[in-house]
């Protein structure tokens, strides 16, 4: 692979804190290597800003290997940038060429308030999990792991849903700011396993109720969430959630 350097224009959302209005600032970065990651490019800019006595750009990130779900960024109108099934931290600068202008914004959703610059508060996701995204089994209660065979197809499908990293790209991409893909992934993971059966109904009802309470919008089956999901979480999970919810609502008082 040929490596090259580039100069770029960045339009970045800056906002001092949750209480103040934000706005775009423009920056030039020079000699960016195509081998850098996108976040390393921002690191370079931040080092320059600090040297100039300016406030660096705040953004969430941690593992930088695409699994913790902490990085975000709405890049040129798309969560996590241009690559398919990718997180921002795994986006590399060979996606860009010399002279490009890149617009960087935080996730935009009422339930994800901006804390500073590009950082948002995603604690609403934790509260949706608290509403039922678990199996109520205390430590020490478990039977032998192989006492409960699970069909490989179901186990694999459960795993595919469990691969969600909770980044919130689905919400950011959705015109309704719906958290249905996130919620449905957890509901599906547990609905496909026999261990999840006893709480199946209450889980679907309670997690949806919490989702609504947090101010996430409804799902209108546009599919933007699936298109931008870094882990390829499928829209069919939402269909399953609707099924679970309906089944539960009709049979629970």
């Amino acid at each position: 692979m040929e490596h090259y350097n580039m100069n770029l224009n960045l339009k970045v959302w800056r906002q001092k804190n949750a209480q103040t209005q934000g706005g775009f600032e423009t920056y030039q970065v020079k000699n960016i290597s195509s081998e850098m990651s996108f976040l390393e490019m921002i690191d370079v800019l931040n080092e320059e800003l600090i040297a100039e006595g300016k406030d660096p750009i705040a953004f969430d990130h941690d593992c930088r290997e695409g699994i913790c779900g902490m990085c975000s960024l709405y890049i040129d109108g798309r969560p996590h940038g241009p690559w398919e099934q990718n997180t921002t931290c795994q986006l590399h600068m060979r996606a860009y060429k010399d002279g490009d202008t890149i617009t960087i914004e935080p996730w935009r959703a009422g339930a994800f308030p901006v804390l500073k610059d590009l950082m948002v508060d995603r604690s609403a996701f934790d509260r949706i999990i608290q509403a039922g995204g678990f199996i109520s089994v205390n430590t020490g209660n478990a039977v032998d792991a192989n006492a409960l065979p699970i069909e490989k197809d179901k186990a694999d499908a459960s795993f595919a849903a469990a691969a969600c990293i909770g980044c919130g790209a689905c919400v950011a991409a959705c015109k309704n700011s719906s958290a249905m893909l996130f919620t449905s992934a957890k509901v599906t993971q547990l609905a496909l396993l026999p261990q999840g059966a006893p709480e199946r109904k209450s889980r679907a009802l309670n997690m949806i109720a919490q989702m609504d309470k947090e101010g996430f919008g409804a799902c209108t089956n546009t599919g933007a969430c699936e298109a931008v999901c870094p882990k390829g979480i499928s829209l069919t999970n939402i269909a399953r959630l609707n099924q679970e919810y309906l089944g539960a609502a009709l049979t629970v008082n």
């Binding site: 089994v137 699970i150 261990q195």
Partner: peptide, 21 residues
Amino acid sequence: AIIDQCVAQGVPFAREYGGLL
């Protein structure tokens, strides 16, 4: 016991066609 506990929590470990881990 860790494996037992994790399976009980719904951790989707890899399985064989017979359904076992």
